[in-house]
């Protein structure tokens, strides 16, 4: 016998994992009830710019199992260290490299918000190609701060030289 919707007698065709409570909770709903449930969740999030939090929540609820999501949440950007969970909570990314680190996860989100996935407008006059290379500086500076915090001054000075060399190479570029 098929599972019944929590709210009515119809068969439950949507299985939503609610993550906002203390424990992840499985909700089994029919299509109609699922839609009104998800709409409600969206209304509660930031009015005005409804998109980000609501869209992300909806997308993740429909697409993943709890385990997949837990694993995704722990993934971190190698440059700035932000985890996907932190991004999800704050709605703000940590550094420009996140668009590379979380490319696959961001793609459907961008399509949902903008109805598109590629920029066609203005490009910078001077440096109009990808600047992702330069995020290496963010990583190096972070490493250096960690080394200083651990009082590993030898490592810190190595990193300082690396940063300087990188900056000089970029300026000469």
């Amino acid at each position: 016998m098929p599972m019944k919707c929590l709210n009515c007698e119809k068969p439950a065709t949507f299985h939503i994992t609610e993550l906002t409570g203390e424990q992840p909770q499985e909700l089994h709903l029919c299509e109609e009830c699922a839609r009104s449930y998800l709409m409600q969740a969206e209304d509660k999030s930031d009015a005005g710019a409804p998109t980000l939090a609501g869209v992300l929540a909806q997308q993740l609820k429909l697409g993943q199992t709890a385990q997949e999501l837990a694993k995704l949440d722990q993934r971190a950007c190698p440059v700035c260290g932000i985890t996907f969970y932190e991004f999800r909570q704050q709605g703000r990314l940590g550094c420009p490299h996140d668009y590379v680190s979380f490319e696959k996860e961001l793609e459907p989100l961008l399509v949902n918000i903008h109805g598109d996935h590629a920029h066609v407008g203005k490009r910078p006059k001077r440096v109009a190609q990808s600047t992702d290379r330069r995020t290496e500086l963010i990583r190096l500076r972070r490493e250096m701060e960690k080394a200083v915090a651990k009082e590993d001054y030898e490592r810190a000075s190595q990193l300082r030289d690396q940063i300087r060399a990188f900056e000089e190479k970029e300026e000469g570029h």
């Binding site: 710019a49 998109t51 980000l52 709605g91 703000r92 990314l93 420009p96 668009y99 590379v100 961001l106 989100l109 961008l110 918000i113 903008h114 996935h117 590629a118 920029h119 407008g121 203005k122 490009r123 910078p124 006059k125 001077r126 440096v127 109009a128 190609q129 990808s130 600047t131 992702d132 330069r134 970029e170």
Partner: peptide, 24 residues
């Protein structure tokens, strides 16, 4: 932009802290 390098992505355009502003 003459003197500073903006975060830019070949496909996504100007990169912003919030994905709702990316592109232009």
């Amino acid at each position: 932009e003459q003197k500073v390098t903006y975060a830019f992505h070949e496909r996504l355009g100007y990169l912003t802290a919030c994905p709702t502003n990316v592109g232009t």
